[in-house]
Design a protein around this nucleic acid. Sequence first.
DNA 1: TGTTAGCAGTCGATGGAAAAGAGTGCTAAC
DNA 2: GTTAGCACTCTTTTCCATCGACTGCTAACA
Lengths: 351, 351
Amino acid sequence: MELDNRKIIILKTIIKNYLATGEPVGSRTISKESGLSLSSATIRNEMSDLEEMGYILQPHTSAGRIPSDKGYRFYVDSILKESDNRVEEVTDIMFKRVDRLESLLKQMVRLLAVDTNYAALVSGPVLSENKIRYLQISRPSESKLLLILVCEGNIVKNMILDCQEPFTEQEILQLNLLLNNSLAGLSFKAITPQLIAELLVQAGSHRNTVSVVLNAVVELMETGEDSRDIYTSGATNIFKYPELSDVDKASKLISAFEEKDVLKQLVEEVSRNEEQSDPGEHGVQVYIGGEGPIQNMQDCSLVTANYELAEGLRGVIGVIGPKRMDYEKVLHSMQTMMDQLDRMFGRKNEE
Amino acid sequence: MELDNRKIIILKTIIKNYLATGEPVGSRTISKESGLSLSSATIRNEMSDLEEMGYILQPHTSAGRIPSDKGYRFYVDSILKESDNRVEEVTDIMFKRVDRLESLLKQMVRLLAVDTNYAALVSGPVLSENKIRYLQISRPSESKLLLILVCEGNIVKNMILDCQEPFTEQEILQLNLLLNNSLAGLSFKAITPQLIAELLVQAGSHRNTVSVVLNAVVELMETGEDSRDIYTSGATNIFKYPELSDVDKASKLISAFEEKDVLKQLVEEVSRNEEQSDPGEHGVQVYIGGEGPIQNMQDCSLVTANYELAEGLRGVIGVIGPKRMDYEKVLHSMQTMMDQLDRMFGRKNEE
DNA sequence: TGTTAGCAGTCGATGGAAAAGAGTGCTAAC
DNA sequence: GTTAGCACTCTTTTCCATCGACTGCTAACA
C-alpha cells in the first residue's frame, strides 16, 4: 500500500489535532477539519489503512487514533524538509542583559520553556576541544598558590593550591612566562606527558611546584567535561500533558530536572551523537519514545540542537516533552534561538 | 481554660500521630496510644476543649482532629526546649569528597532531603560582610584586563574588562601593589567613595583604568549578594504528602524549586530575620503556614538554620515540607548537619 | 464531680450499576 | 469510490446505596 497524498493529509491532520488536544482523534473530527470534503466513513477507511501501515494506532477499540512513533517520525521529517523560509518570531526580549554567559543561558532556557510549553534545558558550553589562551599563577598568601586559566571564549577558571615552597617575585614572573610560552594556544589534549616532562626539565629547581601546577591545569581543563552546568526551566510544564502527569512519571522526570546528573549524561550522549553525524546546521536531533539517550523516558520525546559560541566551545540545547510534542513549533523555536546565538557570538568574537 | 498536663499529652499524641499518618486523628486512637488509661469518650471531652482553645481543628464534622498552626507552634516550641542531649545519627557519608565547596553543599542538601523526606535547600555562602584577601589584575591579551579577587574563605571571583590603554609590565606590578595595599582586608562596605577618590589620585596617569577596576571590584562583591547560588534536592518529595500533591500546589512549589528566584528571596528574608534575632546556636527558625517568608506557601512549613564557614561567610540551609512536618526529626537533622559544618570549617581555617 | 458506655447522627469514602458519549467496523445503497 | 446508518465496543461520568469513622450527647456509674 502506498502513502498517497490524501493519506498524508489525513495523517498530518491527525497528528496536528492530537498535538493540540492530547486526545485521540476520531474520523468525524478529521472529516470536518482536514479540508478534504470527505465523510467520516471514508476517512475511517483511510484510517484503517494508516493503522495497518503503522502510522497511527488505537489506544482502545472505541477510541480515535493517535500517532505512532512511525507517524511522529514521518511528521518531523516532513517539517525538517519544509523548514527553510522561517520568519523570526522570538523577539529580542531575549537578551536584555548579556553581561554574563550564565545569565544568558538561563534566559535562553526560560524563553524556550515558555515559548514551547515544554521542559527545556541548556548545557553550559564545554571546552574539551578548547584552547588555553592565557594562564597565570600568583601568591595570594604565603602558603598558597593561585592558578588562573583563561580559555578560548574568555572562560576563566581558577584553583587554589597549597604550596609551602618559597618564591621570589622574580621567580613567579619567570614561571608565568615559561608556562604561557609553552601552554598558550594548546588544547587540553595537547598537554601530553612528553610536554609535561619537557617543562619539568625547564623548571629547574621549582620542578615540584610546576608539576603541581600542571596537574591542576589538566584537572581544570577536565572538570570542564563533567561539571558542565545544566540550566533548566519549565519542568512543571509536564503537568500540562496528562500522559506524563501521574505522580510516578512526573516524579521521575522532575527529579531528573532537579538533580542534574541524568541530564548531564543525556547531554553527553547527545553531543557524542552529534559529532558522528554530519556537521549540518546545528545538528538538530529528535529522539522519540525510548530512543537513544532517553531510554528511561518512554513517554517523552527530546529535541536537541548544538550551539557553538567559539571554536570548540559547544553546548547543547534541548526540549523535553510528551511524544505528542508540537515538533514544528519546537524545531522552529530552537532554530530561532540558534540564529540569535550565532548572531551574537558568530565568528566575530575571535578578537 | 488551662492547658493542663493531660491536655498536653493528648495534644502531643494527636500531633505525633498526624505527623506519622497524615490522617486526622480520632478519639479512639488516642485512647489506645496516648498511654493514658482513658476511654475514648473522655478523650473526646478533652479534645473538645483543645479545639475550643484553638490547638486542634476538625476538617469536617465526622473526621478526627488535626493540629492547627497554634498546635504546631506549641509542639515545635516544646521540642526546641528539650533538644539538648542529641545523639549523632547522620554519619560521615556526608563528606566523601570535599574538594569543592559547591559539591559539598550539593551533598549536604541531598543528604538533608533524603534524610528528612522533605524538600531541602541550601544557599551558597554570601560574602557581603566578607573581606577582600587579595586581588590582582593581569593582561591576558592586549585589549583585555583580567581582574581576580580572592576573598575570605578562599572564594575566588573574576571579571574580564575591556581596556585599550597600554601598560608596561612594571606599571601593572605597581598597580597591583597599590590595590592590594589599599584594599586587602577591607569588606565590601568599607570601599567608600572617599577611598575610591583617594586611590584615583594615587593612580596618576592610569586613573581611568583604576576607576574601571574599582567599579568591577565593587560589582564583584555585590554580585555575591544577589547571585547567591541555591542548591535544592528532593523537590519531588512533596508528592508524598497528599495535602501538597494536587497539580496546582505541586506545580507552584516545584517551579519555585526550579527557578531559584523565589528561593533566593526567601533566603534573603530568612537571613535578614536571623540578623535581628539573638545570635544563638545556628539561628534556627521555623515558619509555619503562611508565616513570614513563605506567605505564598500556605500549606507548607519551613525550617531554616544558618551556617557560617568563616567570619562573615554565611549561608542558609532549609527544609520545606507540609505543615505536618516531623519537626523533631528535621530540627535534629539540621542540627547534626550544622555540627558537621562547624567541625569542618570551624575557626581553624583562619589560616 | 469526673469517667464511661452507648447510641444517634453526620459526612466523606467506596463501589458498583446505569447511562452517556465517543468511535469504529461493516453493510448496503448510491 | 463514496456515503449513510446501524450495531457494537469500550471508556467516562454520574448517581446512589452502603460503609465506616467520628463526634456529641445523654444517662448511668464510681
